[in-house]
Structures are given as structure tokens and as C-alpha cells.
């Protein structure tokens, strides 16, 4: 636990020192929120502007986790520190989970930024149906996404350009998780896929806390699937790490 906490803090600090990461984290969610607000206004649904701002915030959290997880391995490779963290006398999961957890935590800025942006610039009232449940749902969503990020990152150990593989995954998860588009408008074959994603349940919990609805079951399912991802990710990570060591491909970039 101490390794996880200190590791998460260290990686969060590390990310906050990168002008590239900070600049993008500051600007992109605000652009997405602006677009969402104008689209919802154009659709004659101004009563759903808060949903639009929250949805844009969730999109920002996912982007942060996705690119953070994609880059978790690749950045260590580029910095020449991958061997060192793999050599650490801890399970691989305890040294990698802090990276994905840090990306999820820094991603919560997107949620704050989009809500604040909507309030200040567009006068969207922050009339959350269940404010405390909203906080719990956001934290659960961030935790779920962080654990899902670990599963992604573990599969990226074997890939030399994992960050490029992460690029096309941004929009499908936004779409399938119902962050801005309700799942009900998607083709029926997407429903089972959406149901096994922690992002779907995290987004549902946050939306239910915003507009009203049973928040806690969604939080529970999000965390349960997230825990499943964590266990699977830990297993994959150990297995893939051994394969990468055996094939001498761990640090190839």
C-alpha cells in the first residue's frame, strides 16, 4: 500500500512537471466541453447542458488514462528506466499501477475544468441531483478507470509502439460507455461490449448522480469490473514481463 501511495504521488508529480502534459490537460477538456455545450444547445436540449459538461469531463478522464497507460511503458522505455522498475523487488503490478492511477487522478482535473468552464462561461447551474453521490461516483469512476488502465498497460509491455495503438481507442470507449451519447442509440450488438467496460458503469454512476437515479449499484459494478481488470492486468503483466525478458525485448523501442 505504501508503495502504491508513494508511487502514485511521485508519478503525479512527475506528470505535473511536463509542460506538454500540463498544457494539453488544461486546454483539451475545455475545447471538448465547449463543443459539447454548443452541440447540446444546437440540439435544442439546453436543459441537458450540465450532462454535456459532465460527459465532456468524463471524456477527459478517459483520454488521460488511455494515453497515460499507453505511455506508461513507452515513456519508461524512452527514459531508459523500464528495466529498473521491472527489477524492483516488488510485484510488477505494484510499480505499474501507480502510473495508471496517477493518470486517472490527474484526469479528474478534466472533470473540474469542464464543470467550472460551463459554470463561468455558459452559466450552467451546478444543480447536481445528489452532490455527495456525485463525488463518490467520480472517485469510483476514476478508480475503475485507473484499474482498467493497468490492464491496457500490461498488454502494452509486448508492444513497441503502444502509444500509437492507444490512439484509436479514444472515441470507441467514449461512444460505447455512453459518456456523451446514450448507449440506447447505438446498434444492439454493442450492448454486451458496453456492459463489460468499467467506463460504462462509471459514466452511468456519474450521470445518475447528476440527473438522479440509483447511483450505488452502478458504482458497485464499476468497482467490481475494475477489480477484475486489476487482477487480470496483474496476471498479464507478470506473464508478459516474463515473455519480454525471455525474448530480450523488454527495452526495445
Amino acid at each position: 500500500m505504501r508503495t502504491l501511495l508513494i508511487g502514485t504521488l511521485m508519478h503525479a508529480k512527475h506528470m505535473s512537471r511536463s509542460p506538454f502534459e500540463v498544457s494539453l490537460a488544461l486546454v483539451i477538456p475545455v475545447v471538448q466541453a465547449t463543443m459539447a455545450v454548443h452541440l447540446f444547445r444546437a440540439g435544442q436540449e439546453p436543459h441537458r447542458l450540465l450532462e454535456a459538461a459532465v460527459g465532456a469531463g468524463l471524456m477527459g478522464v478517459w483520454s488521460s488514462v488511455l494515453f497515460g497507460s499507453g505511455g506508461a511503458i513507452q515513456n519508461q522505455r524512452w527514459q531508459g528506466t523500464l528495466e529498473m522498475i521491472i527489477m524492483a523487488p516488488r510485484r510488477p503490478v505494484t510499480v505499474l499501477l501507480p502510473i495508471t492511477a496517477a493518470t486517472a487522478i490527474t484526469g479528474t482535473y478534466a472533470m473540474l475544468a469542464t464543470l467550472l468552464w460551463g459554470r463561468l462561461l455558459y452559466g450552467i447551474p451546478l444543480d447536481l441531483a445528489r452532490p455527495y453521490a456525485f463525488l463518490a461516483a467520480t472517485l469510483a469512476c476514476v478508480a475503475g478507470l485507473g484499474m482498467f488502465g493497468l490492464l491496457l498497460a500490461s498488454t502494452f509491455v509486448l508492444l513497441r509502439n503502444a502509444n500509437a495503438l492507444a490512439n484509436p481507442l479514444e472515441y470507441p470507449i467514449w461512444l460505447l460507455s455512453g459518456m456523451l451519447v446514450p448507449i440506447s442509440v447505438l446498434p444492439s450488438w454493442t450492448v454486451p461490449i458496453a456492459a463489460v467496460l468499467p467506463t460504462t458503469w462509471g459514466a452511468r454512476a456519474v450521470r445518475e448522480a447528476t440527473v438522479g437515479g440509483p447511483v450505488w449499484p452502478s458504482i458497485g459494478i464499476c468497482l467490481a469490473i475494475g477489480t477484475g481488470c486489476l487482477l487480470l492486468g496483474a496476471y498479464c503483466l507478470t506473464s508478459f514481463e516474463r515473455r519480454a525478458r525471455a525474448a530480450a525485448t523488454l527495452a526495445l523501442s
Binding site: 447540446f40 440540439g43 435544442q44 484509436p168 479514444e170 472515441y171 470507441p172 461512444l175 451519447v181 446514450p182
Partner: peptide
């Protein structure tokens, strides 16, 4: 990537009309 982006906005546009 761009194809998924297109689908995302097309479905969003459908929903919001």
C-alpha cells in the same frame, strides 16, 4: 481513429437531432 471519430459524432448528432 478518424472512422471512430466520425461514428461518434454521427451518433451524437442523431441523438441530439
Amino acid at each position: 481513429g478518424p472512422t471512430f471519430q466520425l461514428l461518434f459524432f454521427a451518433y451524437l448528432g442523431r441523438q441530439l437531432r
